[in-house]
Design a protein around this nucleic acid. Sequence first.
RNA 1: GGAGGGGUGCCCGAGUGGUUAAAGGGAGCAGACUGUAAAUCUGCCGACCUGGUGUCUACAGAGGUUCGAAUCCUCUCCCCUCCA
Length: 379
Amino acid sequence: MLIDKSPFFRVLKNDPQSAARTGEITTQHGTILTPAFMPVGTRGSVKAVDPTDLLKCGSQIVLANAYHLTQRPGLETLRLFGGLHKFMGWSGPILTDSGGYQVFSLAALRKIEPEGVTFHSPYDGSVTFFSPQSVVAAQTVIGSDIMMCLDECPPYPADYAPVAKSLALTLDWAAKSRAAWDPNSGQALFGIVQGGFYPDLRAQAAAAIAAMDFPGHSLGGLALGEPEAERLQAIETAREILPKDKPLYLMGLGTPNDLIQGVLRGADLFDCVLPTRNARNGQLFTRFGRLNLLNSRHKEDPNPPDPACQCLTCQTFSRAYLRHLLKNREPLFSRLATIHNLTYYHDLLAGVRSAIKTETLAQYVLDFYAAQKAQDSPD
RNA sequence: GGAGGGGUGCCCGAGUGGUUAAAGGGAGCAGACUGUAAAUCUGCCGACCUGGUGUCUACAGAGGUUCGAAUCCUCUCCCCUCCA
């Protein structure tokens, strides 16, 4: 019997004036409307909120981290529970990062070799070796719907030669990851385009990754301190080379501005710790800029963080009360702030999807910046 | 009534003759945060003036010793513990 199998990715509509598009990614755990933002739940938990909160915020897919999960709780525990979905109580799609970012963020604790990376665990000091193959295997146990290749995320700034050398390693690992992946597993594997901010290296990376025929593509090594112009150039360079019938994921991005600029350059997926981390640190993203609830001017402010926001936090609580919770380290603050920031991020991209469909994206973007400018915003 | 201990900046708390406007916390104020070793980190934090090797005020109060005191001496006020 012939089964009509949905394609992994489908573009529903292209924006006539930019590279932006809206589409859908189909996984075994559900469909993701793109462009989409993925909240970061490194250890199988988006800090401060539970799966019910996530659904209410508009989260369609969450990100977890293969490196951290292998350290704790460990693959045996996850295997016992039948994968991360059941373990964490999230039945929607999951994307796992490989641990490539930890090659960057835990630079003092790892050693890179041609075959892989040796990490000294920040948890207990134990030593673990990660190869491209073992990382695919780990993500298979985790059961993520979208897996990432092990890569090396070079720091910024970096000279040409070391970036070129790093890229060669990442491309070698990508080929090995691709070979270790079972295309019929129901789990997708994305190749990662590195190359720093040298256009020829980015282009070379994009071409090489495209040739390996992954279900989707990621751009790594972004938002490491480089000027925005360089970041956007790197995205455009890769976008021109990568096939447009596959989803493009901008790893680690970003600010609301990064999301808009990414969308305009054809990005479909984003993830970033900013909405969740900054929430816990008292900073809320709103339609009119960032709001630091620590500031004393909110001490007696009866207004919600964002009057136009429909989230639980904005519908129920004042800035003054939220500031009170924050200053007294009440655990409730983290949840309420995270709910708001995630809702804002998801609303921003829901608006983008809608605007692309109605061919009003240009106006949507203009309105976004006009509103952001209404108050001081670092973006 | 007797014996002993103690009073330090908004709060707690180091410091027992000199580089002390006075460690360290906390509070307060501001900033940062981009594939999470982050409910974290950084800066400011006596007052004043144009941020300077500037002026003034300051370690319960008053007086004294000394070139120099939060630090030593005397008295006063207050607090705590134990014995009556």
